[in-house]
């Protein structure tokens, strides 16, 4: 039984440390990369992989009980929520940055299509207002 306990400590500790390592890589990426959309790529890694590794390590430490279930819930919630928040942030960046072409390739046709759609929407709403 004691050996099993030590094995548990080793496995859990290894998972926890790998989670911390991923956080470290995330930090490196966030200082190394030059633009927000690239930095977001690094930040999303810690939000999904880093926290899932470290929480799985903590789950192994705590054993089978209610706390483990709640930790699992946190990981599942973050897997749902973090990609969506990155999506919203990317949308914020793209729609508020005026000289986006400096940093990345922009497809002309798509942006034109979006502009046309926006104008149509504004026209429709203007008609409703009057």
């Amino acid at each position: 039984m004691e050996i099993l306990e030590w094995v548990r400590l080793l496995v859990g500790g290894a998972l926890l440390l790998s989670g911390l390592l991923i956080f470290l890589i995330e930090l490196y990426g966030i200082f190394h990369l030059k633009y927000v959309l690239n930095r977001m790529h690094a930040a999303a890694m810690g939000d999904t992989l880093g926290i899932s590794f470290s929480l799985i390590g903590l789950m192994i430490f705590s054993g089978l009980n209610f706390v483990t279930l709640k930790m699992m819930l946190i990981v599942i919630f973050l897997w749902f929520a973090s990609p969506v928040s990155s999506h919203m942030l990317a949308r914020l960046e793209v729609s508020t940055n005026e000289d986006l072409k400096k940093h990345c390739q922009v497809y002309e046709e798509l942006s034109r299509l979006e502009k046309d759609l926006k104008e149509e929407k504004i026209k429709e709403e203007g008609g409703e207002e009057e």
Binding site: F77, F80, A81, V84, M88, R91, S95, E129
Partner: peptide, 29 residues
């Protein structure tokens, strides 16, 4: 009644499909 549309997030992004799908799953929980 005059300004309803203007105040109701006229210039905000509407009907974001990704956000709506996620909220559809997460909100009841």
């Amino acid at each position: 009644k005059k300004q309803r549309i203007r105040n109701d997030r006229r210039f905000e992004p509407k009907n974001d499909g990704i956000l709506q799908g996620t909220v559809f799953v997460l909100c009841p929980i």
